[in-house]
Design a protein around this nucleic acid. Structure first.
Lengths: 345, 345
DNA sequence: GCGTCGCATGCAAGCGCTTTCATCGAAGGG
DNA sequence: CCCTTCGATGAAAGCGCTTGCATGCGACGC
């Protein structure tokens, strides 16, 4: 033994270096830029690494290299299957590139999200994945001056001043679904939306419906909007509320599939035939959409693809700081199933 | 200005110290042990922190303090609602204690899980949350010698040599559901299980059924088990497989609700009346269980409570290394809904 | 055969924070 | 009034790694 065989605790770079008979610099290079080291040396070092079971201390590495190989993601909640699915794909792709996922959820609270942006930044995330564009100017400024690569998902907005995004145009997709609804003769439309206060996707979807309605020559009076929290029960309640009006809508467009399924269940419990008496549409195309009866007319969002490509993009943005990330628009098609039918006469 | 007003980039402890006219040690104490600093000083420091918008660099802190305030969690997949929900609660509770969540998913692959255990450990997770007890001896040894606090969730096993756990006794719960099934006269039982190779929860559930069956005087021949991957479609396929036998079972117990709903759908498409012709049971009580028609007889697992309490426990284990963590068993009740009925005569 | 270049390697200076130990002054006791 | 005690603070040594720069060596060209 040359010196103290090794201090207690996990072995470090120095232990490897000693065992391999090289300097710590060489070991470091061996691990991070193998081709800058002679093959013979490399083998010796790797052997030492193996026998010691060495694993680098990422905190130290992060401190020295100013890079953590960690990406942060802040999503409203993992309990929503669409985010769970997208984030799952995001994480898998990240793993493929040697990154680890630091995750936080904001519960749709703007203030909480801000706090988490600061936390994940302080924790040295190399990049950040955020949902939607809605964000206080202070936060946008913070992100900009920190210069931390940030990508927005589940939304698409190519505007110059926006953060780069990977997603789809919520307004346009919803407008096209609304057109399909109106094409079937519906003239009184109800909307069950998620709360729009801090949710620009929900807001955009409503805007989409509004523009399609205007385009079709209907008026604002033909539209009734109910905002509610995310959930099956809340969807059901909103449905009842909508149908209790003197002139109930003949079609109800929901901001997402969960609300739509809640509405569908309420409809059936109330004795309505769907789509005979009332049509219902969703958004997202979660698995449940095909599991309910009748299957739900909705909009197919490629959540997994979005997550995967967001990871790819973010990794690229981190690797090449000068890369002015382009926003990418993903294809979202409406999928006509059985809850949408002609307006009752 | 005393010196260079401040280097480019985010401000550091030293900048705060200079502005407040104290040493970096004092600033550090101010942030980590406020009562070891005079109130007057503290105020001055905090003011400086505020004006500079200072946020500590966690990598540096982790390196110096040997603590990252990060917990690692490795789950099979976030796409399974039960994990998403549990992890959501886990993360929320962690946040309340100042911890951040580092997450990885193993896709039910043992080798991948091992790799991720090593990665999250190298990244300095203060503690680890793992699912189930099944794990290579090499990995158990690694965990033990690293001394990193580890908690197992979604399983409960108070045995000495096991890692501490926060969960429920899969075998016992399933046995009690099996008893409820047999109490209704079922004598030929089919089982649709998740793959048991690296999944001790799935295995335990089958064991539970076996023991209940033995106890009731039925034989192994009255039991038919099909293993399949997680999913609605695979559940449906397994159901068909089971019913195609010459003497099909009168009750089919599924390893989880997703498989059960898949089976239920298949049954209905095949023209079976559930529970008139065949009974079906699930496990987990996900939201979907009450959304399908007829609602699913299953077992109610308190996923959120499990996640939350796992976080609490883990934080306590990290704070007090000597704390020999106890395993805690959570109450899981069977919930009788409509897919379980008397055996057809 | 000698100068020169290029490459593999080593040396050592940090990265931004925590923490031990020393210092200093005020408070308290005799 | 001096000595002791104690609490607040500062100086400085790391934490384990990366990396710019220096070094030394062999290969190559003329």
């Amino acid at each position: 033994m040359t010196k103290s065989p090794s201090a207690p605790g996990p072995s470090k770079l120095e232990d490897v270096a000693r065992l391999a008979g090289v300097s710590t610099a060489t070991v470091s290079r061996c691990l991070n830029a193998p081709n800058r080291v002679l093959p013979a040396t490399r083998e010796r070092v790797l052997a030492a690494v193996a026998t010691l079971g060495y694993a680098p201390n990422y905190s130290a590495r992060a401190l020295a290299a100013r890079q953590t190989f960690t990406m942060g993601a802040i999503i409203p909640t993992m309990e929503n299957a669409i985010f769970a699915r997208g984030i799952q794909a995001f994480q898998e792709e990240l793993g493929r590139h040697g990154y680890t996922l630091l995750i936080a959820s904001s519960s749709y609270k703007e203030a909480l999200e801000e706090e988490q942006i600061r936390t994940l930044t302080a924790r040295g995330s190399d990049g950040l994945l955020l949902i939607g564009h809605h964000r206080h100017a202070r936060v946008r400024a913070f992100l900009r001056e920190r210069g931390i690569p940030t990508l927005v998902a589940w939304a698409y907005d190519p505007a110059e001043e926006r953060l780069p995004s990977m997603g789809f145009d919520n307004a346009r997709v919803m407008a096209s679904l609304a057109r399909a609804v109106m094409a079937r003769g519906h003239q009184r439309i109800g909307v069950i939306s998620a709360e729009t206060a801090a949710n620009d996707r929900a807001k955009a979807r409503i805007d989409g419906i509004r523009s399609a309605i205007a385009e079709a020559g209907l008026s604002e009076a033909d539209l009734t909007i109910v905002e509610t929290q995310y959930g099956f029960e809340t969807g059901a309640t909103a449905f009842r509320q909508l149908m209790d009006r003197s002139e109930p809508p003949t079609a109800i467009m929901c901001g997402n599939d969960v609300l739509a399924v809640g509405a569908l269940r309420a409809a059936q419990r109330m004795g309505f035939d769907v789509p005979g008496d009332v049509s219902i549409t969703g958004f997202d195309d979660i698995e449940l959409a095909t599991l309910v009866d009748p299957p739900l007319t909705t909009t197919h969002v490629p959540h997994r693809e979005m997550g995967r490509r967001a990871a790819e993009m973010l990794v690229r943005m981190v690797a090449d700081k000068h890369l002015s990330a382009e926003s990418t628009e993903l294809q979202v098609d409406i999928v006509l199933r059985d809850t949408l039918g002609p307006a009752p006469t």
